[in-house]
């Protein structure tokens, strides 16, 4: 009941957040689109987490808890004033029908890696924020579907459909890029 009184010292809290700082920052950066906003978002997250630290349930995933605060802060405060690239219309990115998105072979990926540069970031930035967020939390930050579902307050099914759409769109984007670079041979799907 007096949890708000029983938080640990500031330095203990800071030390606990520190290992997750890079993760919070890069997620904030991909969501806001630029460094200064990303820093603001991380700072706001940090302060909110500090104030709510008494409500953190010991034994649960601290990283997921931090990301819950980050995503809520982002959705409430940043979503509207984000300077991130203009959101692609949802219909535009929806994969048509059941067409499978192309898969890369490990060799293709190796070639892709050499020339990719910022193309991966640009491809990510083109995803609708809701899809991008789920992709970042899952694929980069290793949160479970359940944790993401809790963080965003959406059903697991929604998490999955956003994630799979995000991946399909990314694969297609990168395949387009590879084709332009002239090294990706589309395989005929077996």
């Amino acid at each position: 009941m007096l949890q708000s009184l029983t938080v640990e010292t500031q330095s203990e809290f800071s030390d606990r957040v520190k290992p997750h700082l890079d993760a919070l920052y890069r997620t904030a950066l991909r969501m806001t689109g630029e460094g200064a906003s990303a820093e603001d978002l991380v700072q706001e997250t940090f302060l909110k987490a500090y104030r709510a630290y008494g409500q953190f349930e010991p034994g649960s995933n601290f990283k997921a808890w931090l990301f819950t605060i980050l995503t809520n802060t982002y959705i409430n405060d940043y979503r509207r004033r984000s300077r991130a690239p203009v959101v692609t219309d949802f219909a535009e990115v929806e994969p048509e029908g059941d067409t499978e998105s192309p898969h890369f072979s490990a060799e293709d990926v190796e070639k892709l890696a050499d020339r990719l540069g910022d193309a991966a970031k640009r491809a990510l930035d083109r995803l609708p924020p809701e899809h991008r967020l789920v992709f970042l939390l899952s694929t980069f930050e290793d949160l479970s579907y359940k944790e993401i579902s809790a963080a965003l307050a959406v059903p697991i099914g929604t998490v999955m459909s956003r994630l799979f759409r995000a991946r399909a769109v990314l694969r297609r984007d990168l395949a387009d890029f590879a084709r332009q670079e002239g090294f990706f041979q589309e395989k005929s799907e077996s």
Partner: peptide, 15 residues
């Protein structure tokens, strides 16, 4: 490897 490449190109920014 695609996930690895995406991680290293778009998911490796440091604070």
């Amino acid at each position: 490897s695609l996930r690895g490449v995406l991680r290293s190109t778009a998911g490796s920014d440091r604070a």
